[in-house]
Design a protein around this nucleic acid. Structure first.
Lengths: 209, 209
DNA sequence: CATGAAAGCAAGCAATTACTTGCAACCAAC
DNA sequence: GTTGGTTGCAAGTAATTGCTTGCTTTCATG
């Protein structure tokens, strides 16, 4: 068994899955897309389920989440960079993600690997926003937990729904910055802590949302 | 042909679709769920496609969007009520909506009816938030368009993703208020216009997000 | 060249699925 | 009771699908 063929099949399976979903990804379709003989799929992976399971796990859901700094600097810039990577992944894989979401009832075992990315992102973001509050750079009343959920939710919804109504949403290139800025405004973000705020009084009027 | 049987079948089809999606909704499954003979489905609807198409259109996607007042009063209360209705619909139909989303590539004709609800909600919310800005009750820098997108996005993502990670999101009962309040904070909402703001200086510290 | 592993090819199986057909049963209305 | 409309029942068709099997071909290695 050669690694190129195995990867080739996994890549092809993920592509077919994105368009056709679980049932619609016939072994014939996958074999054609991978440019191999159908029987090869069974020789290597044993069953269609095993093949597709591994394909979407390794090609869609398993990934590294970008790090956020332990000590926040320019939060608007840092979070926008971070959100851009997150959003890019969601946008790139939106078809597969939509297919995976539709399988939640019939294949609950998919739940864990599907939730891995969102959980990781959520945790990092929440920690970062909590630090902002602790540093006196966001309102003490703010809930980093809720704000993190809202930002990630908005990014997710945008990526999943954009194909449905592209004209009704902010331009894709602007999306990360738009939602990051709204989120930071929502938690009363300021570039400097309260003690230093009097000297930088105009900071908030310079950024529009 | 009797109307009860027709409706019975449509209801059953929608239920089966929510769990099994398009392909997985076999005519046998639907007939069993509707407690009718399989041939009846074809007598009444002609094909499985036509049946499912009508079922999800009429049982999931076609709906009335709650109105928002032309002149905003207590925006936190009004938007929370409104968002609660919106969220409830999304939560109730989340399985069907997820299935529908997964079909976007293979059945692009679904796009329009799927987008109808979100578009309507988006428009109403945007108009309402624009009025807030015009009344001097939100920041002139705010973009009602972006804020509307974020609020609706967050509600959507929450409803669609809750099954995947129920513990990582705000409690469902609190969701509408949480995201409405964050959104209003993001656009610099105040209960009264700028001219009257000095007399109600404590308004913002009373509500936590 | 010989060998073994990997993959291709062709045929086929059993199960499933949307759908059809002919007859029978049921029910409401006259 | 008769009639017409609606639905059920049973059997079946053609197509599709995951998967298997036996033989052949290809390729890398010694």
């Amino acid at each position: 068994m050669t690694a190129p063929t195995r990867d080739q099949i996994l890549d092809a399976a993920a592509r077919v899955f994105a368009e056709h979903g679980f049932r619609g990804s016939t072994t014939r379709l996958i074999a054609d897309a991978a440019d191999v003989n159908e029987v090869t799929l069974f020789r290597i992976f044993g069953s269609k389920d095993a093949l597709l399971g591994e394909a979407i796990r390794t090609r869609v859901y398993e990934r590294d989440i970008l790090q956020l700094p332990d000590t926040p600097g320019d939060a608007r810039a840092e979070l926008t960079t971070w959100a851009t990577a997150e959003y890019q992944h969601l946008l790139t894989h939106r078809r597969s993600i939509r297919q995976g979401m539709s399988e939640l009832v019939e294949r609950p075992e998919l739940c864990r690997c599907m939730a891995q990315g969102p959980r990781g992102g959520y945790t990092r973001l929440r920690v970062y926003l909590t630090r902002l509050v602790e540093m006196g750079r966001a309102s003490k009343d703010a809930s980093p937990l809720n704000a993190a959920a809202m930002l990630l939710g908005a990014l997710f919804a945008d990526a999943m729904g954009r194909d449905m109504m592209p004209d009704a949403l902010p331009p894709a290139k602007q999306v990360p910055a738009v939602y990051v800025n709204l989120t930071l405004d929502a938690i009363g973000y300021v570039a400097k802590p309260a003690a230093a705020r009097r000297k930088a009084a105009g900071t908030r009027v310079k950024r529009g949302a």
